[in-house]
C-alpha cells in the first residue's frame, strides 16, 4: 500500500500579512512558515496512523516549492513519512502545482493520495480536485474519517447538514479535514530519523500557468465596534435591523 501525502508550506496563522512591490508580492519578511495545518494534522497524521496499523504501508511526501520549503518537509518526515519529494518550482497557480504532483503520482503508482482540504494562505481548495481531473481518479473531498479495507477505503465526508459514508475503490484521492486525526508533535527520535530519510529533489515539468496574481489588497479596517449598553438590548436589535439589515 503506497500513500502519497501532499504537503504545502504556509505562513503561520498568527503571521502579519503584508505585501511589497506595489502590492504584487506577499511580504515574507519575518514570516514563520509552517506545514499547512490541514496537510499536517489531518492528511499526514492519518497516513501515519494507517502505517502504524499496517507496516506494509509506505508514505511518500510531496511538496512543490524551492529550497526554502525543506525545513517544512523535514518536519513532516520527523512526524513520520518514509521519504519525500520536492519539486523545485514556486508557483501560485494551482494548475501548475497540481500538474507537478500529478506527474509524480503517475510515476509512483500510489494507492491513495491525501491532501488537506485547502491551504490557509490561498484557501483555494483546488489541488485534490485538480489531481482527480488530471489523473482520472475518484475523489472524496472534505473527509473526516477514513479506514482501509484491502483495495477499498471507507470514507466519511461532510455534506450540507450532515455526513455521508462512502466506499471508494483504490486508487483514489481524499482531501482531509478536522476529525480525521489529532495533531501530533514530532519526537526526538523522529527528528533524528528525519535527517537521514531520503529527500529527492526533482525538476518541474513544463506547464503553462492559467492564472496570474495582479495585486493584493488589505481589507478596509473595521470602522470600530459600536458598543451598546448591556441593559439596552433593544438598541442592538434596532441597529441590527435598521442599520446592518442583518435580519
Amino acid at each position: 500500500m503506497k500513500l502519497l501525502v501532499c504537503i504545502s508550506k504556509t505562513p503561520d496563522t498568527t503571521s502579519k500579512i503584508a505585501f511589497t512591490e506595489g502590492n504584487t508580492k506577499f511580504d515574507e519578511n519575518g514570516v514563520q512558515w509552517i506545514i499547512n495545518p490541514y496537510d499536517e494534522w489531518y492528511a499526514l497524521v492519518r497516513a501515519i496512523e494507517m502505517k502504524e496499523q499496517d507496516p506494509a504501508v509506505t508514505i511518500h511526501l510531496v511538496t512543490v516549492g524551492e529550497a526554502d520549503a525543506e525545513p517544512i518537509i523535514r518536519k513532516a518526515l520527523a512526524l513520520g513519512g518514509d521519504e519525500a519529494i520536492r519539486i523545485n518550482i514556486q508557483s501560485n497557480d494551482s494548475f501548475v502545482v497540481a500538474s507537478q504532483i500529478a506527474a509524480i503520482a503517475k510515476e509512483g503508482a500510489y494507492d491513495l493520495i491525501l491532501t488537506g482540504k485547502e491551504t490557509i494562505d490561498y484557501n483555494s481548495a483546488c489541488i485534490g480536485s485538480m489531481l482527480s481531473g488530471l489523473l482520472d481518479l475518484p475523489y472524496v473531498s472534505l473527509a473526516n474519517q477514513m479506514t482501509l479495507n484491502g483495495n477499498t477505503a471507507s470514507v466519511k465526508r461532510e455534506i450540507e447538514g450532515g455526513e455521508e459514508t462512502c466506499e471508494v475503490t483504490l486508487p483514489a484521492i481524499v482531501s482531509c479535514q478536522k476529525g480525521m486525526a489529532e495533531q501530533r508533535i514530532p519526537n526526538m527520535r523522529g527528528i533524528m530519523a528525519a535527517r537521514t530519510k531520503p529527500l529527492k529533489v526533482v525538476e518541474p515539468i513544463a506547464v503553462q500557468a492559467t492564472t496570474s496574481i495582479k495585486n493584493y489588497d488589505l481589507p478596509p479596517a473595521k470602522s470600530g465596534v459600536k458598543l451598546v449598553a448591556a441593559d439596552n438590548v433593544e438598541e442592538l436589535v434596532r441597529l441590527l435591523k435598521e442599520e446592518a439589515k442583518a435580519f
Binding site: I120, Y122, N123, T210, T211, K214
Partner: peptide, 16 residues
Amino acid sequence: KTVFSGKAFAQINIDT
C-alpha cells in the same frame, strides 16, 4: 477573492 483566511484580497487574472 479573499486569501490568507480573510486577512487580505487577491486580484487574480484568468489567462485562458
